[in-house]
Simulated scan of single mutants.
Amino acid sequence: MSFDEKCFYCSKNKDLDSLMIKICDLNVSTVYLFKEQTYNGRCNVVYKEHKSEITDLTEDEAAAFINDVRKAAKAIHKALNPDKINYGAFADTMKHLHIHIVPKYKGGPSWGKTFDMNPAKTFLSEEEYEKLIVNIKNNL
């Protein structure tokens, strides 16, 4: 299994913990909830092995990863009923394969535009994070 000790997704260090909360493991990925919740329900689906590009995966691995992304997005749709979900795969500096799942709501932040990567506006209480995580998990 590929691992990079400098990568916070691989090492699961305090930098990762400062940004996200683990929701669960899926087939080939891990789903995290962003602590910053300007976009209610924003998650990240992170490939378990250290791979930089989706092209680094075999056909079967890529299909399994996209299926995990689909499963997480479907759970967010059921749990939170967003008007649309945006997907982002940015990794210029964080070279570990992951896809952002960003629920968008009509009249809400960045509706009709690209979502802000780091808005740093909305944080929840521990109880609110737990409730959101349980709601998403119950729909997986």
Rank of each mutant, 00 (worst) to 15 (best):
F34R: 09
F34G: 05
K35E: 06
K35C: 10
E36L: 03
E36D: 00
Q37T: 03
Q37V: 11
T38H: 07
Y39W: 06
N40Y: 13
N40I: 15
N40P: 00
N40F: 14
N40L: 14
N40M: 10
G41D: 10
R42S: 04
R42C: 00
R42T: 01
C43D: 03
C43P: 00
C43I: 09
N44Y: 00
V45E: 09
V46F: 02
V46A: 03
Y47I: 02
Y47C: 04
Y47P: 08
K48P: 01
K48F: 11
E49N: 14
E49A: 12
E49T: 03
H50G: 03
K51M: 02
S52I: 05
S52G: 05
E53N: 10
I54D: 01
I54F: 07
I54V: 15
D56S: 06
D56M: 06
D56C: 08
T58D: 11
T58Q: 14
D60R: 13
E61G: 11
E61C: 12
E61W: 07
E61S: 12
E61H: 12
A62F: 08
A62H: 04
A63T: 13
A63N: 14
A63R: 13
A64F: 04
A64H: 12
I66P: 05
I66H: 11
N67C: 12
D68H: 11
D68N: 11
D68V: 10
D68I: 08
V69Q: 07
R70C: 15
A72E: 09
A73D: 13
A75M: 13
H77T: 04
K78A: 14
A79L: 09
A79Q: 04
A79E: 10
N81H: 15
N81L: 13
N81S: 14
P82K: 12
P82F: 13
D83S: 15
D83I: 09
I85Q: 09
N86F: 04
Y87V: 02
Y87A: 08
G88P: 09
A89V: 12
F90G: 03
F90L: 10
D92P: 10
D92F: 09
T93S: 14
M94F: 00
M94L: 08
M94K: 06
K95N: 01
K95T: 08
K95D: 00
H96C: 01
H96P: 02
H96F: 00
L97Y: 01
L97Q: 03
H98K: 06
I99W: 01
I99K: 00
I99S: 01
H100W: 04
H100G: 02
V102A: 01
V102M: 04
V102Q: 03
P103M: 09
P103K: 11
P103W: 04
P103A: 07
K104H: 02
K104S: 07
K104F: 04
Y105Q: 11
Y105M: 10
